[in-house]
Design a protein around this nucleic acid. Structure first.
Lengths: 211, 211
DNA sequence: GTATCCTAAATTGGCACCAATTTTGGATAC
DNA sequence: GTATCCAAAATTGGTGCCAATTTAGGATAC
């Protein structure tokens, strides 16, 4: 992807994978749950070819973000309360489990970096798009988990995070809630700096549940 | 260089998805790590079309069981010690976490069913193929996890189990080890029947690590 | 006026062909 | 004898076309 960044012509869309573009539009709430993703529309919307569209849809179906109905097409999954709850449970188990390793291994330099990312999130709350906010949040949490030392876990959580974010707009709509998220980020960094594992665990649990 | 072995006899049914067939051959050790999966070979081996092969390869690449090198093709991933260790860690965290729920919710009927599956595994140790043994093991663990009540977790663990089973043959080679697995299954069922959560957790941890 | 059937448009999904890139084998130069 | 370069073969990956299936619209019967 590094070489693709240099090539910033008229549109970024040619360089990045179509799958990510559709994914982001689903996460951003542009493509609402239940919407039928007609291949001809996606083809035009993302300026790409038919096979690319099909591959993207197949990948999203594998990730279970869209459902495939043979000879009918693909449509965005409806939000599933049970699934969302179960994914939250899984995230709590995994993310509180790494809390110990994080407190143990975090150097002051890495804590400073984490603080930077928390501040970047705050800035995006004030003057950033929904997508930028989403990515700032993701960056913070990815770096947080990276401190645990289990890279496979970082990827896994990043993956399952996308799994139930079918209605991020409604979840992130209220400004108060987003600002609360920002404060919690800083509290987590504080807990790490203070080597307070138990507090970090409580914060992580709350942070996942409150959304 | 060792190319994909062409064996036109092993075709069983057109009904199943090609992706699963390739997946099973990788898990069974028929397609060894490092093997280049030439599209023309797969096409003939599984009696399917070129697009089907491509979709299967793309899906396996998403699951990170094969690596895609542009204009070169797809090859089976080499076993990665670090990754295997990290996946084991994740599995321990997740599977010990559901231990409580399992002990709490398991009815006598479901415990009996679990016992059946453990016994089925034992039979496959004696007179079953590597694949049948693998599936009997999977069936036991899936039912075990199902008792926890978090269906999303069942799917997730099933998924990450496949993620590092690139060398199941070497892992499962010794009969003594497989028989030990069978005994551990029964010990786990015993612990559930006795409502001994802590013992179940210890057993689960050992079971994951010993492989 | 309503329900049913039938025809036509639209969409999906598979198939075959072709261009682009890489690898292999051999010939040539040193 | 060894290394380098070039040409031919093979493989990947994209494009366009067409068949199969579904849906929408309208005509007909009751």
């Amino acid at each position: 992807m590094a070489d693709a960044v240099i090539d910033s012509k008229s549109e970024v869309s040619d360089a990045r994978d179509v799958t990510d573009l559709v994914l982001q539009d689903i996460l951003a709430g542009v493509l609402l749950p239940g919407t039928w993703l007609k291949q001809i529309d996606l083809e035009r919307r993302y300026k790409c070819t038919r096979p690319e569209v099909r591959r993207a849809l197949d990948r999203l179906a594998q990730k279970r973000l869209v459902e495939h109905v043979p000879n009918r097409g693909y449509h965005v999954y409806e939000p599933d309360g049970r699934r969302a709850r179960e994914v939250s449970e899984i995230r709590i188990v995994l993310e509180t489990a790494v809390a110990e390793a994080i407190v143990e291994k975090a150097s002051s330099a890495e804590i400073a970096r984490l603080r930077q990312l928390a501040e970047h999130f705050d800035r995006m709350v004030l003057n950033g798009t929904t997508l930028e906010l989403y990515e700032a949040n993701l960056a913070f949490h990815r770096h947080l988990l990276t401190l645990g030392g289990n890279l496979e876990l970082v990827e896994l959580i990043t993956e399952i995070r996308q799994r139930t974010s079918s209605a991020p707009v409604s979840q992130w709509r209220t400004r108060a809630r987003v600002e609360q998220s920002g404060r919690e980020h800083h509290m987590m960094v504080d807990a790490i700096a203070a080597s307070d594992t138990d507090r970090l665990k409580v914060l992580v649990r709350q942070h996942i549940l409150q959304r």
